[in-house]
Each structure stands twice: as C-alpha cells, then as structure tokens.
Write a protein that binds this DNA or RNA. Structure first.
Ligand SMILES: [Zn+2]
Ligand SMILES: [Zn+2]
Ligand SMILES: [Zn+2]
Ligand SMILES: [Zn+2]
Ligand SMILES: [Zn+2]
Ligand SMILES: [Zn+2]
Length: 483
DNA sequence: GAGTTTGAAACT
DNA sequence: CAGTTTCAAACTC
C-alpha cells in the first residue's frame, strides 16, 4: 500500500533536461525524482524523459500533454534487484512458492495476461482472475519476471494491493475453477533461455511457444483468442474485425488450441503488449525466475463472502470495485459473479498506450510514413517509441487519418497485412519457386525483391515472416523457395 | 553501441 | 513504369 502511495504521489515526470554539458551516467539520471520545477527551457526545448527503459527526447509541450494523460509513469524501482543482477534461482523459487500462497491465479494463462486482458463479453478486465490476498508487490514483480520499470509499464502495480490489516481478500467467483501456478521444470532452463533469446520481429510469427495454456474442463477464457497474434495472419474477411470479434467471442470460438503462439497480446482494440519485454536484462531475469505458467492445476475454491469495499477514504485503492455484471453468458456459473474493477482513467490511458510497447525508432520520417512500423500498423507511437519529431500521436489523430487516406489513395493496400494465408487453390503459374504446398501457407502478397540477401535472413520480408518465396517474388538467387 | 547492409517506401 | 534517394530495420562487429 505504501508503495502504491509513493508511486502515485510521485511526480509523473522523471525528466531531466538533456544534459549536454555534463554527461551523467544513467544511475544519476534515474535518481532525479519528483517535482523539479525547472520549467525554463534553456538552450534547447528538449527534455529527456525516461519511460521504462527508454529515454525519450521531446519538447516540453509534448511532455506536458503526455503528463496530463499520465503517460509517463514514475519509477518505483530505481534499481530493482531482479533487474540489476542475476537472481539466485533457489531464492527465486522460494519466493515463487511464497507467492503461490499469496496469490490465487484463477486463469490458466500467464498472470500478465490474466491481469490485463479484457473479457470481451462484458468489457471488463478480468482482474478477478487473480485475487491477491495481500500481495507483495516486489514479490509479484519478480515472479512475473519483469524488471521494475517494465513491471510498472504494465500497470499491474496499481492492481496489486499491499497486504493490510484487514484482509483485502477478493471474493472468489463461485463455480470458476481456480488454478495454481505451475513451474517450469528446473531442468528446462535451456528451453526458456532459447526462446527468451530469440529475437523476433514484432510482426513475425514465432515458432516458440511463448505462452502455453492448458484448460480445465471446458473453461475457455475469452482472452485466449486475443492472445493470438493476428497482425500477420489476417485471414478474416477483413470487415470490422473488432466488432466481429466481439460477436464471435460470445458464442462460437469452440476449441481454440490450448497452445498460444505469439509474443504479443491485445490489451485494447488496437493495442498490444508483449508478454515479455525485449530488454535483455529482463530476459535474464525471466530466465532465472522461471515463473512462467505452463499449465494449470485446479484447486479448490474457497468461497469467502468478504466484501472488502471500504474504499471511501483511500482513493489509492482504485482497484476492486465490486459490481455485479449482468451478462447473459451461457455459462451460468459466471453470471453475475464477476467481481470487477473500475479502471481509473489513468490506467485506461496507460493501457491504451501500452500497445506500442515495442516502439519505433524513426528519426526522419516523423512517423507519418510507412517507414514507421507504428504508422504502418495503423497504430500510434507511444512511450516506448524513440522517434524524433513524431507526429503519429493520438492527439494528432485527425491529421493522421488524413495522411493515411492520402497514402491509401496511392496504394489501397498500403496498410494491409503483407502476408496472407494462401488460398486453398493451387497457384497457377509457378516458376522454379515454391508455390506448391509450402509448409507454411503464408504468402507475401506482393512478393519480395531481394537482391543480395538470398532471402535467407530477415531482410527478406518473406523469410521474415516464415513464408516461402513465391512466383510473386522477384528475388535473385533465392534461397527461400520450396525445395 | 556504432557502423554497415539491406530492400521497401518515397520520390523524380 | 524505371532509376534514384531516403529510410528504418536487420545485421555485424
Ligand atoms: Zn515511428
Ligand atoms: Zn512509434
Ligand atoms: Zn513516432
Ligand atoms: Zn526475399
Ligand atoms: Zn520472397
Ligand atoms: Zn526469394
């Protein structure tokens, strides 16, 4: 609790005027906390703002506007132990065991996902899927395997209450099975390492099972579908995907595969969040903590009728507002039972902008050209982008839409996914290349034109997305055909 | 982290 | 269209 308070009371900007004259090292920069008035921009109007692991240079207006929208979070952990140094495995495991006694995870998915994924049937974030019975923030962070900064970026800290005298226990949902965390096997470290080390383009499909879920009974959390990365594999009829999704999730969805592939999951209609951050050090932490949920084990659900409201005085406790949700779900057990949180606007802002977690680094395009991956994906740049003179911001939406239209007039397919699932019919003209039943049924809609890379590395868009080159490609000396 | 290579996007 | 320039990511060291 106290930690949260500190968090919220802090100034949102941990900014430092770009110190040109004296190059201070990072540690010092981080130190600068709260409320340095400092307004007066001296020589340059640029401020260097730290957000997560990234430092963003922006002018003061930008900072101000961002701050108003609470896009900059304060840094709770100036040096998080898990981040700064490799962690002791045994210690971690002990902490993990401890955590398991503190937190009941009712979802068979990664706690990050469980926290953040909205339930599309009711629009609520299924916070109820984790009931922190007095959760220790640090402990949870470590167990999740993120460094403090990235942990903050997730916004989870707001959800997690410190233990207090009166138990803050959340009301378990009767009928909803609870799951316990299940560890990786200790010997599996190499496996974890292997996929942690993988560098995957954010639009690429991953071969690694980054998130593996097993279900209990017929429990099919709606969030699973969202977890799948659909950025590339766009085989849906292309119309109002979001609405269609919402509908679809209501009923059908049937047997989605229990294995979820992909690195990012949606936190909003157009936003995504990587489950694991890209920071090497975080990976290291992750590796050592081995805290990924790979399975689900049912536990008995202890029903308590505690109605821990009493949130009058303390506004910090923005989480946990019980309200009954009337949704005529088929699953009657869930009906009316979802405890739920009211999201603060701050949090919504945060979430809405986490999608750009893997940001661009555009320097000259102002992020309003297709060079920019954010722009290309019809997204806005966010806190993690390290672009210069970015104009691809939400508050600039009208302009952006115009620009998009302009580009579309030039190329109507400019914003479409570059790869589509191959149509069932066999392709007609095929040269020496691919085309006949490639192991991957992805096809680049335009084909690549690689000249020197032999289509054997990620310079090639076909290769990058795991697709074979096809007759559409005009590559030279292609090494990526169907052999 | 800096520097190089690369091919798509943008431009002419 | 083609040829060139620009660009940011992929890659290398
Ligand atoms: Zn950009
Ligand atoms: Zn961006
Ligand atoms: Zn940008
Ligand atoms: Zn190629
Ligand atoms: Zn190709
Ligand atoms: Zn090729």
């Amino acid at each position: 609790m106290q930690a949260i308070q500190n968090l919220d009371n802090r100034n949102h900007i941990c900014a430092e005027r770009k110190a040109e004259e004296s190059k201070m090292n990072c540690d010092q920069v981080v130190k600068t906390s709260a409320n340095t008035p400092k307004s007066e921009p001296l020589k340059s109007d640029k401020l260097e703002v730290e957000y997560g692991h990234n430092k963003i240079e922006c002018n003061s207006e930008e900072v101000k506007s961002k701050d108003q929208k609470n896009l900059f979070t304060p840094l709770m952990f100036e040096k998080s132990p898990g981040y700064m140094k490799p962690r002791n495995l045994n210690e971690t495991m002990n902490q993990y065991q401890e955590l398991k006694n503190l937190v009941q995870v009712k979802s068979p998915v990664h706690p990050m996902a469980a926290f953040l994924q909205k339930d599309p049937s009711n629009g609520l974030t299924p916070f109820n899927q984790i009931s922190p019975k007095g959760t220790d923030l640090q402990l949870y962070r470590k167990t999740v395997g993120l460094c403090g900064k990235h942990f903050e970026q997730t916004g989870l800290n707001v959800y997690i209450s410190q233990s207090e005298s009166e138990s803050e226990e959340e009301e378990p949902i009767p009928g909803v099975p609870e799951f316990s965390l299940q560890d990786f096997d200790k010997e599996d470290v190499s496996d974890i390492q292997s996929f942690c080390d993988k560098k995957i383009h954010k639009n690429a499909l991953s071969d690694a099972d980054l998130l593996e879920c097993t279900f209990n009974d017929n429990e099919e959390p709606n969030l699973l579908e969202d977890l799948a990365d659909e950025r590339v594999l766009d085989n849906t009829p292309k119309i109002d995907k979001q609405k269609a999704n919402k509908k679809a999730k209501k009923c059908s969805k049937s047997k989605s595969k229990p294995i979820i592939r992909g690195k990012r999951f949606k936190t909003g209609e157009d936003t995504e969040l990587p489950i694991f951050c890209n920071d090497n050090n975080c990976f290291e932490t992750l590796l050592n903590s081995k805290s990924i949920i790979s399975g689900a084990v049912q536990k008995t659900s202890k029903v308590t009728s505690k109605n821990g409201d009493k949130n009058d005085s303390n506004s910090m406790r923005k989480r946990k507002v019980k309200n009954n949700v009337q949704d005529q779900k088929t699953s009657s057990t869930r009906k009316n039972q979802l405890s739920n949180i009211r999201k603060s606007t701050r949090l919504m802002n945060k979430e809405a902008n986490l999608g750009e977690c893997k940001g661009c680094t555009c320097k000259r395009s102002k992020c309003i050209k297709l060079y920019c991956e954010c722009f290309l994906s019809k997204g806005f740049c966010g806190p993690s982008c390290t672009c210069n003179d970015c104009e691809n911001m939400e508050e600039n939406e009208e302009e952006i839409v115009k620009i998009r239209e302009k580009i579309l007039s030039r190329n109507p397919k400019a914003f479409e996914k570059k790869l589509k699932i191959e149509e069932a019919s066999q392709p007609l003209g095929m040269g020496s290349k691919a085309a006949s039943a490639p192991s991957s049924n992805l096809r680049h809609i335009k084909g690549c034109t690689c000249k020197r890379s032999k289509c054997s590395n990620n310079y090639c868009e076909c290769h990058q997305h795991g697709a074979k080159c096809t007759e559409l490609c005009s590559c030279i000396d292609c090494n990526n055909g169907s052999d």
